[in-house]
């Protein structure tokens, strides 16, 4: 791999002090390292944040579930607290990548990377998450800005993600048979006053599907979506799926998610 310097930060202050526009934070490294290997990215320094104690852990308090940025997918998947509070998030984590990716990959890394077909961004939008960073709190609706683009400023570090616990929820993913990333993934979360439907894989970055939300807010049932036809404009079309097919999948998966909501 291209040269870089590796640092281990002991605390957030040290990490942010080392950071610049030429550096990257290293958590699981599941995306960063292959990108460097393939010479698609180059950094002067990688700042390992996994030794920072405050950044890991799972905590339920009242109406929210807070997960530290460097918490691994496998730990989220197996956590009793997560299963009890938001079971759909546990199964989402259990479906990311493969067991080895889940043993290394982290929630903070996934969100900061904002891959257009990643799973966690959909959870953030659907579950009204707040992203706590080294300098502020960002609502997830304002966090995901574009393909691989977030509201994070240079050197800003995600500390934790705080999800609102819904009444019921479900995430359904239709994986790409090659990469196993989502061709489309739909996260449906029903709260007392609203229904959120977040979609990943279908556009250049995660979004909420207001057309479906509107209908489900009035009538939270699978059949209520039967007469809906989604527009295909803005949807991804690539070798793996056309826009038409993605539009169809959004609706199909949304129905499945509603039917399986727990």
């Amino acid at each position: 791999m291209k040269n870089f310097s590796y640092h281990t930060a002991k605390n957030i202050k040290e990490a942010t002090k080392l950071a610049s526009s030429k550096t990257a934070y290293l958590a699981g490294g599941m995306t960063t390292l292959p990108a460097i290997k393939l010479r698609m990215a180059a950094y002067s320094d990688l700042i390992d944040i996994k030794k920072i104690k405050d950044l890991t852990g799972i905590k339920v308090s009242g109406k929210t579930l807070k997960i530290g940025a460097t918490t691994k997918h496998a730990d989220v998947a197996s956590s009793k607290e997560v299963k009890k509070s938001i079971a759909s998030l546990s199964s989402l984590a259990d479906g990311i990548g493969d067991p080895q990716v889940r043993n290394r990959g982290t929630i903070g890394g996934s969100i900061a990377n904002n891959d257009p077909s990643a799973d966690y961004p959909a959870a953030c939008l659907a579950l009204n998450a707040n992203i706590h960073t080294s300098s502020r709190k960002i609502e997830s609706s304002k966090f995901f800005k574009g393909m691989f683009e977030t509201a994070l400023k240079s050197g800003e570090l995600i500390q934790s993600v705080e999800f609102q616990i819904p009444e019921k929820s479900c995430y359904v993913k239709f994986p790409n048979p090659a990469s196993r990333y989502a061709i489309v993934g739909v996260y449906v979360a029903k709260f007392k006053s609203e229904v959120n439907v977040a979609v990943t894989g279908a556009k250049s970055y995660v979004f909420r599907c207001e057309e479906i939300e509107k209908i489900l807010s009035k009538n939270f049932s699978e059949s209520s979506l039967n007469s809906l036809n989604l527009k295909t404009s803005g949807l991804n079309a690539d070798i793996h799926a056309s826009a038409d097919y993605r539009a169809h999948l959004i609706l199909t998966l949304a129905k499945k998610a509603v039917a399986s909501c727990k």
């Binding site: 590796y6 290293l26 490294g29 599941m30 390292l33 292959p34 290997k37 393939l38 990688l46 390992d48 996994k50 496998a74 493969d98 067991p99 080895q100 990716v101 043993n103 290394r104 990469s179």
Partner: peptide, 25 residues
């Protein structure tokens, strides 16, 4: 691209893809 799994080893008892882990880490 960390997909094939030919490089899987155990780190502290857990399987990881050794092609996507820094030695220093």
């Amino acid at each position: 691209t960390s997909q094939c799994g030919a490089c899987v080893v155990h780190v502290d008892g857990k399987s990881v893809k050794s092609c996507t882990v820094l030695a220093a880490d």
